[in-house]
Design a protein around this nucleic acid. Structure first.
Lengths: 233, 233
DNA sequence: CCAAAAGTGTTGTGATTACACCCATGT
DNA sequence: ACATGGGTGTAATCACAACACTTTTGG
């Protein structure tokens, strides 16, 4: 720790891990880079942090450019700092993971991005240390969603309990008992039952629910123990 | 996202949040800066990341310089990236929090550091955004220790259950039932009972325990639900 | 012998699991 | 009418909180 002037300066970037759910499986949005280096290779979407921006700002900007969406759920995952992680020049990267409603996503026209949704278990090879970043993000998603009402962010505003249950099944690769799942979720008081039903997926039809915005924030920290602990790393 | 060469470079530092427990209360190690800027003011210990180092490396080095100890428990807390957080020049800081055995700590002679342990609830004013960093670290300590066997890192290798209970009481500011606390802890099978007792704190004396190293790693993820959820933010 | 702290036992309550059963409806 | 998936009921079990009780020992 000595004088500022003697210190090296480094490049500073953000990378975004974007989860989506199409109703069947959990997916990740990755881009095929339209620029050098590694043009044509698969990569997380990212960008350099500008002068006036915090990393949060930069990640929000990158997400907006890619998806056209503002105000997505987003949280800092980890700072990746290995000196040699970027093969061009040392770059510090702060990774953010975000959850988006698959239905709201509309591909943006941008020469730099050629985004593709990949099933979370069938990702292509990614550049640099992006594979490792994704692994950490998957782990954190499972960890956090076991304790907090997070997965709603992946669903449309209106969703049914069977849909939600299937999402949990995708994320944790375990079956949940229908009855117990319903009871446990409704007992959190986080959901409001709507009048209409989804009749596409069954004959009887399943009621739609939406998240109760008043209760959501309060309930965020009292959602614990939703998934048996042996499934949470 | 354009060419690397057009991008700005920034200073890159680490800050360490160091928790200790003296048997009575939870404490934080802060330094009185012996160098400019802010000479004489209270601050977290930190340092710039060098060319060859990852942030982890740098944090480990800083900790070693301050405490003389290697291999301390350490984990990344958060990257702090507000453009104006350092008043001299824009500096990205990755914060690490670590837990140390108070008894092992020996002050190192170093003209830059004048370290002092402060009770966690009676901290002096800190420079820059260090107050905010500490708040986040306290929150994360409580969160993580509620789910994982973490607080052992603050105790000597040999400790008694009443000591451990008191530590939990300090961290969460709640009383734990003696009987239930004991049972719950022993049921984790993480502890090995030793033959000798601590007779300093009571007439009857309390058996010493140590962490079972074999079980510790396995049990790290299955320690959930130790603290009632309303006390975990 | 008594105070004080360690440690054990007991009991009621509420959560959780497993699984059976009923319901609504498109074909 | 019946197959299909949504939704409800229930009994056994388990985990937990509360608190009473026993043990040990220094003074």
């Amino acid at each position: 720790m000595r004088r500022y002037s003697q210190q090296k300066r480094f490049l500073f970037a953000v990378d975004c891990i974007i989860f989506g759910y199409d109703g069947l499986e959990l997916k990740l949005l990755v881009i095929q880079r339209g620029f050098e280096p590694c043009k044509g290779k698969w990569s997380l979407v990212g960008g350099f942090v500008q002068d006036h921006e915090s990393a949060e700002d930069a990640a929000g900007r990158v997400l907006k450019e890619l998806t056209g969406l503002d105000g997505l759920y987003m949280e800092q995952l980890h700072a990746f700092t290995q000196p040699n992680r970027d093969e061009v020049e040392r770059t510090i990267s702060v990774a953010y993971f975000s959850l988006i409603d698959f239905q709201k996503y509309k591909q943006q026209i941008n020469e730099d991005y050629h985004p593709v949704w990949f099933p979370i278990n069938q990702l292509p090879e990614l550049i640099f240390d992006h594979q490792k970043i994704v692994e950490l993000a998957k782990e954190k998603l499972r960890y956090k969603a076991a304790l907090h009402p997070l997965l709603f962010e992946l669903l449309p505003a209106k969703f049914t309990l069977p849909q939600l249950q299937n999402l949990y099944t995708c994320v944790y690769n375990i079956e949940f008992d229908k009855g117990n799942f319903t009871r446990k979720l409704l007992s959190t008081n986080l959901l409001l039952k709507l009048k209409d039903k989804d009749k596409l997926n069954s004959k009887k039809g399943a009621f739609y629910y939406k998240v109760d915005p008043k209760r959501y924030n309060a309930g965020f920290t009292s959602f614990l123990n939703f998934v048996p602990s042996q499934y949470v790393k």
